[in-house]
Amino acid sequence: MITVNKLSFSYGKARVLRDVSFTAERGELLAVLGPNGVGKSTLFRCILGLSKPQAGEVFLDGERVCDIRPSDLARKLAYVPQSHAPTFNYSVFDMALMGTTAQVGGLSSPGAEQIKLVSAALERVGILQLKNRGYLEISGGERQLTLIARALAQQADILVLDEPTSNLDYGNQLRVLAQAKELAGAGYTVIQSTHNPDQAMLFADRVLALKGGAVRALGKSDILTDELIGELYDIDLKQLKRYRHT
């Protein structure tokens, strides 16, 4: 379980997050919704312990995130970045194997146990057949699944997915979202950011809607009324209705 308590964050004078509080339970998929630039990435950076909030705290099962050593944190909390293009063309298997680094000592390499974990993780997200392919040679959706497999091999039970569908085509978006949903069903806590309300409605158990860096609404996905969406994205209600109900 992850608890965010009255989190505030500013870059210099610009306040990005104000008084953000919420809880994500075991086995739920929480969508963090809001337009680009609303503070979703900053919120994630604070949750992951990458940025230090000026006020407020993040707790993992009662323990403050900033008090947990990075190597211990890696075994509780896994980050799935947007599918990226690193410089070197690692194999899909090696890319996923990197997730197991925190399980072995600082001066050693992952061993047989970690190799088993990675095979199981790749199998689970359905891309074991790609294990020897280059990470840069596969599609964006397959890369995203590789990064999810890496997070699973990391053996954390909380997964933080940063806009996992933003560079994907329609089919791959659905595949990745279905995978996230399935993991939540299997007992993982999944926190996923998105700027797309339709995705939040389709897949999330609960939605956290951010506006101007503050929580505007939090609840089951039926809170996403046309009025709320119009307000979050600053669009004319008539225009929105015409678009959504045709």
Partner: peptide, 11 residues
Amino acid sequence: TLSDSEARTMG
């Protein structure tokens, strides 16, 4: 060879 934030989340 990945980003520093990514490496840090892996410990």
